[in-house]
């Protein structure tokens, strides 16, 4: 499918639209060639070739598309493919690098601080907010299988909530966890997570399994 030309408007539109992560990734992936060609072209001495605003938005958006599709090593590789001068000077790309470091080191609290506290460009905000929500959900699923019992402050820390409010047993915070099937023991002041089931959209196909087993059977003969 022919994509619209590589432009600030188009990338802003992609960042604002709620495309499924894999689709967003694929579309942005196709624009990388344009971005790479543009960055090799003539431009200011400070930022390298091309339109720095467009390149910054593109690479930042593409970086978030990697995170939304859980491709952390490849996101790191992307930061090495970015035009070097731009990477060193552009605030948005610098924020991406800081975020990458926090994710790499699984510093959950820091990840939320970076996403919420650093100045992200307006056109990137939808993706930043989207990733924050994604990261929160993903972490909630992970800690629900990791912990049998967890203090509210620890859980709040993982989810970017206020640990002190959670420590005091604030009902609104506790409600966030109990609404996911967790149980709250007020006497022990502990939350008991319940593993969260993520249903895939793919329909189960018993035929596929049957065919595989048949193939395994035949190949042994």
């Amino acid at each position: 499918m022919e994509l619209p030309p590589f432009s600030l408007e188009q990338i802003s539109k992609l960042a604002a639209n709620n495309f499924p992560p894999s689709q967003l990734f694929e579309i942005l992936s196709q624009y990388e060639t344009d971005a790479s060609i543009m960055s090799a072209g003539s431009g200011s001495a400070e930022t390298g070739g091309g339109d720095p605003q467009l390149l910054s938005l593109f690479y930042s958006s593409f970086f978030f598309a990697h995170l939304l599709t859980k491709q952390l090593p490849e996101a790191r590789a992307l930061t090495q493919r970015m035009p070097e001068t731009l990477r060193h000077q552009d605030p948005s790309l610098q924020n991406c690098l800081t975020l990458l470091r926090a994710l790499w080191q699984t510093q959950h609290a820091q990840v939320y601080q970076i996403l919420r506290g650093l100045p992200w460009p307006e056109s990137l905000q939808p993706l930043v907010r989207r990733y924050e929500s994604f990261f929160q959900d993903d972490t909630l699923i992970a800690i629900s299988t990791c912990y049998e019992a967890i203090r509210p402050s620890t859980a709040a820390n993982y989810l970017g909530l206020d640990p002190q409010t959670a420590e005091q047993g604030d009902s609104a915070v506790i409600e966030k966890f109990t609404s996911c099937g967790w149980t709250w023991d007020p006497a022990a002041q502990l939350l008991h997570p319940s593993p969260i089931v993520v249903q895939t959209t793919d329909k189960p196909s018993s035929n596929g399994i049957r065919e595989t087993m048949a193939m395994l059977g035949n190949s042994g003969k």
């Binding site: 699984t106 992970a142 800690i143 299988t145 990791c146 912990y147 049998e148 019992a149 967890i150 203090r151 402050s153 620890t154 022990a188 002041q189 502990l190």
Partner: peptide
């Protein structure tokens, strides 16, 4: 340890106590 468990590398669970 929690990050090892979350990544799926270690099969275990953590149980916290009410007292830190």
């Amino acid at each position: 340890i929690a990050s090892f468990i979350m990544s799926g590398a270690v099969k275990a669970t953590l149980v916290q106590h009410s007292s830190g």
